[in-house]
Design a protein around this nucleic acid. Structure first.
Lengths: 143, 143
DNA sequence: GCTTTTTCTGCAAATTTATCGCAATTTTTG
DNA sequence: CAAAAATTGCGATAAATTTGCAGAAAAAGC
């Protein structure tokens, strides 16, 4: 029964225990749209608020999750380590988040740019705000 | 004495009054490093906390300011409308924020990418985390 | 410039979001 | 399986953000 997921192995390697709370928080984020802390808490009623915060803080430190900014608020999602690396299109009108699969040209330019400054890039985020095709259609007639 | 700044004209065009609080918040952000709300409040003791929040919220709606994510916290800076468009290198070790001037290749790729999805891009942010040259030098001997 | 109307701001209170200390529980170790 | 170490839940707090409303400041109309 040593069905260790990559996640559990990573926790152990990092010298942290594999606990019920951590497994559940991870599971709640896996294969999901980015979620706010409020949403996470709602989906995890069997875990105390404080533990969810503590877990998320730990996960961020270990680069298991990251925040993405959605207007005034933020949401959480797994990092590329446990998810494909991707960026987002965020519709300013309806709030839809469209994940973009990795784009070699952009990724390469980003690395090259950072390196020019003697900087060693580890991670990056690209978020694009605008209007999705659905909203554009609804809006066009208006003007 | 109608020395109207672009900022004040923009507020008027958008049907909002030009007030003392708005001028001061704008001034506090102008030509500065990105600031947290806490820092803004500290620099703006003559304006009530609630008004600073309200002003920042309005500014965000009008695309005058945007948030950038710095680890677990966020900071505010003026958007390209009142500042040069740029991205950031953020050192994971010392926390330094290095502004990057616009890079035509990246900008073009970003626009092209969004357009492929029928998306109309309005704004975007690119944040790169890693290690700055200074920290790299200090760290190298260690291993 | 002065009055009226409309839009902001300050203030105090209320909400919401996040953190803390510590005893009890769970996980790891051997 | 027992002992040691790490983590959780709980209640209490603290920090961050929002709200209602009366008074003040800005815009609009003479």
């Amino acid at each position: 029964m040593s069905a260790n997921s990559a996640f559990e192995e990573y926790l152990r390697e990092s010298d942290y225990s594999v606990t019920r709370a951590r497994r559940l928080v991870f599971a709640a984020l896996e294969n999901q749209e980015p979620q706010s802390i409020a949403e996470l808490l709602k989906n995890l009623t069997s875990i105390d608020r404080a533990s969810v915060y503590r877990t998320v803080t730990l996960f961020e430190k270990l680069d298991i999750v990251r925040r993405i900014q959605i207007g005034w608020k933020y949401k959480l999602e797994l990092t590329e380590q446990f998810n494909f690396h991707h960026h987002h299109l965020i519709c300013k009108n309806c709030g839809t988040i469209i994940p973009l699969r990795e784009n070699p040209t952009i990724e390469a330019s980003i690395l090259a740019l950072a390196t020019e400054y003697g900087f060693k890039p580890i991670d990056h985020q690209l978020e694009i705000q605008g209007y999705c095709s659905t909203c554009l259609q609804k809006m066009t007639p208006a003007k």
